[in-house]
Design a protein around this nucleic acid. Structure first.
Length: 765
DNA sequence: ATAGGGTTAG
């Protein structure tokens, strides 16, 4: 640093930044140096955790007037204060840094540290590289942990590995426990628990943080048992576990569902060996919730002196996951502060428990509260839309995402494709897929599933080819979807080939799902013995799905003996499976075995197997209405019943005969109370048939309306009918497509009709 | 003068 010989007069104006001017102000260097270090203003910066932005600005101004910023030491004190305050203004910190001429290494470390844990950790890495290129200093044992932290935040494997290489070259750094600990954390953050562990094993004297980082790496990598082993090893050694250790251990107990170990951990902590902390309490709460021990969770929660929104949300999830939705809702209403995660937790729990309507009601509620949905919210809401066939709301969410510049990440792209496919709008699904800039295995798999459920098996297989050309590795879900496509399109040979290639070519062991798909493909094709072979050669004992697939094949091809066997096995696993009885009964009926039909009914009656209450929904103007079988509670029930009677008589006039081959459904009155019919009739306009006669219709617009009604009704009256077949059968669908009406159908995985939405663009139907 | 590790929703 140049020695100054000018008299000491504090400069009145702030210096502008000039990197070429390495001079430090216009005053006597030595006297300023002493003053700069001792100046009382600096004492104001000591407690930087309490300084707010305004106080920092005031101190900054005073320091400018006093000329203190010309000295690297005092300027760094200011930099530290504004970088390390609780909510640092990094752009401000960066401006202060840029005005410090010849920043020393401490200064560099501070600014890199601040950016490493800031909103854009890339800036920390950029600063690190300008430290290397533009400064005379070399990064030290403080610099590396900050830079590696930034790489970890970004999961930037390449950059972090480069830092690791630099560390490895320096004998001082490569054995520094802080540096190595940050590398253990870094590799774990990149999802590579192996590398993480290898660094850990090289630490000469691991401290508690080393152990904690390694245990956390294993815990987060899903290697639960190894995490617990490492914990035991630590416990036997000279390093004492602390509260942070126990957070990871509790989390592993939760993931494993190991309540016994979880309780031992809990009492170990309560004996006072371990410091209490809110995070640890939350981790224990989560452990109890995941182990389904709500009583333990409640008593822990009740005894907690401080709780944050994570504590409340964890309790909420505990109630919701155990089906106590009223209690969950009470927690939600009582919690002092709700963040978006609390909303997401409840919405997701509803959606995953087969309560999509409640999920969407809550989603609407969220929009009226002043909460802002995030990606997790939208993923959950889209999934609820898929389950309900709520196309209109799904479209609205899509538009909302575009309007608010949501990054279409893999997760959201997958959800959109799934929603459009399941709500029947395959073209939109294909469009989302086509517009996706990047596609991971889930995006590809969702699109393959979409094509499969719409009966476009060939195209699904083509897409699989394209996926491989794009060098995306298929996973187990991809193969389930491909086999599903083969099943729908009747592609037996292709199905066999895919299945046989799974392990040798793709290294994926077929699971029970894949075996069941094969049983389904072969069974539908009438290759019942081969199907049975797949079921009986499964790696795990065949489950209800496998026997169900075989039973389905037997029912189609009237194989009573094998069908009975499959049904027996299925009922051993699921004694209350109503569907199994119905299929077997239909199989008997179609083979003329009426005695067996009667016997089966008797068995069902005696074992009081009940049909699950059917439930259907319809979306009208973005609002979802639900109907149960025989539901008479809807406010417009009169209208609905009139509609149904009208449709029924028109169907009869049009020569429609309900399919009576299948079981029950015989009484027309009962038909009217089918939940699907109730739902669709409620969505039809009051005057749909006003003054019309399907045989002599003048106005084509009205004709279309009438036909829509008839079409929907006929499809719905035979809800077991595949939608694809119905489409072929009813040519009138073309009218629908030309009209202003939008007709979309929700399909289940097998391409069967779940939901129908019918609405107009622009005008009321 | 500066350091590192941990909990909820998908």
């Amino acid at each position: 640093m140049a020695t100054q010989i000018l008299p000491s007069h504090p400069p009145a104006l702030p210096r502008t930044h000039d990197p070429n001017n390495s001079g430090c102000g216009r005053s006597n260097h030595l006297s300023v140096r002493r003053k700069a270090e001792d100046h009382p203003v600096l004492a104001l910066l000591d407690d930087h955790r309490r300084l707010d932005a305004d106080s920092i600005r005031r101190i900054h101004a005073r320091m400018l007037r006093l000329g203190l910023l010309d000295h690297p030491y005092s300027a760094s004190r200011l930099l530290a204060a504004c970088s390390l305050s609780p909510s640092p203004d990094l752009r401000y910190a960066r401006r202060v840094f840029d005005h410090i001429s010849a920043p020393n290494l401490f200064t560099w470390n501070i600014i890199i540290r601040a950016h490493a844990s800031g909103p854009d950790p890339r800036l920390a890495l950029l600063l690190f590289s300008s430290l290397l290129r533009h400064s005379p200093h070399s990064p030290d044992k403080f610099t590396f942990p900050f830079a590696i932290k930034a790489a970890a935040e970004l999961a930037a494997l390449r950059e972090g590995a480069a830092l690791h290489a630099m560390v490895a070259k320096s004998p001082f750094l490569r054995s520094d426990v802080f540096v190595l600990n940050s590398l253990v954390h870094f590799y774990a953050a990149c999802g590579d628990s192996n590398l993480s562990l290898r660094v850990f094993e090289k630490i000469p004297e691991p401290d508690v943080v080393s152990w904690n980082s390694a245990i956390a790496a294993l815990a987060q990598g899903g290697r639960w048992d190894e995490a617990l082993q490492l914990f035991e090893e630590m416990d036997r050694g000279k390093v004492m576990p602390n509260d942070v250790t126990m957070v990871s251990v509790a989390s592993v107990c939760g993931k494993k569902g190991d309540l016994e170990l979880g309780k031992r951990i809990h009492s170990y902590i309560e004996r006072g060996e371990i410091k209490q902390s809110l995070i640890l309490d939350n981790a224990l709460l989560d452990m109890f919730v995941k182990c389904r021990s709500l009583a333990d969770a409640e008593s822990l929660f009740d005894g907690m002196t401080t709780r944050d929104s994570i504590s409340w949300t964890t309790m909420l999830v505990g109630y919701a996951k155990s089906g106590q939705f009223d209690a969950a809702r009470r927690v939600f209403d009582e919690m002092p502060r709700r963040d978006i995660a609390s909303w997401n937790a409840l919405i997701s729990c509803y959606e995953q428990s087969g309560r999509p309507k409640e999920a969407l009601d809550l989603f609407h509620e969220l929009q009226h509260a002043d909460a802002t949905p995030d990606q997790v919210t939208l993923v959950a809401a889209l999934s609820a839309c898929s389950q309900l066939g709520a196309l209109e709301l799904g479209c609205w969410i899509h538009a909302y995402m575009e309007k608010n510049n949501f990054q279409l990440n893999y997760h959201l792209t997958t959800s959109l494709i799934d929603m459009y496919s399941k709500c029947g709008d395959l073209d939109k699904a294909l469009r989302v897929f086509g517009c996706a800039s990047k596609r991971d295995v889930f995006v590809w798999s969702a699109m393959i599933a979409g094509l499969a459920m719409h009966g476009r098996g060939r195209e699904a297989l083509d897409l699989f080819e394209q996926m491989q050309e794009a060098e995306v590795e298929p996973n187990t879900v991809t193969f389930t979807n491909i086999l599903c496509a083969c099943s729908h399109a009747g592609l037996v040979e292709e199905g066999r080939l895919c299945f046989s290639q799974m392990l040798p070519v793709y290294g994926i062991s077929p699971t029970a799902d894949h075996y069941s798909c094969m049983a389904d493909i072969l069974g539908r094709a009438g290759l019942l013995e081969e199907a049975r072979g797949y079921v009986e050669s499964m790696p795990t004992p065949p489950g209800a799905t496998a026997w169900g697939a075989l039973l389905g094949g037997c029912a189609i091809h009237k194989n009573v003996e094998l069908g009975e066997l499959a049904c027996r096995r299925l009922l051993e696993l699921e004694p209350r499976n109503h569907g199994a009885y119905v299929i077997l009964s239909n199989l008997y009926a179609r083979s003329g075995r009426w005695d067996a039909v009667a016997m089966l009914r008797k068995v069902m009656k005696e074992s009081s197997v009940k049909k699950e209450a059917g439930c259907s929904s319809i979306e009208v103007d973005g609002v979802v209405h639900e109907f149960l079988v025989g539901d008479i509670s809807h406010p417009t029930k009169e209208k609905i019943y009139l509609q149904l009677e009208d449709i029924a008589s028109r169907l009869k006039a049009a020569g429609y005969v309900p399919d009576r081959k299948e079981e029950d459904d015989a009484k027309e009155k009962a038909l009217c109370l089918h939940s699907e019919n109730l739902a669709i009739a409620s969505g039809l306009p009051d005057d749909m048939f006003a003054g019309t006669d399907p045989d002599h219709e003048e106005s084509s617009c009205v004709t279309v309306r009438v036909w829509i009604g008839l079409l929907l009704a006929s499809v719905l009256l035979e809800a077991k009918q595949s939608w694809m077949e119905a489409k072929k059968r009813v040519a009138v669908l073309n009218f629908v497509q030309q009209s202003k009406c939008v007709l979309s159908c929700g399909l289940d995985r097998d391409g069967y009709l779940l939901q129908v939405c019918c609405y107009t663009r622009g005008e009321a139907l």
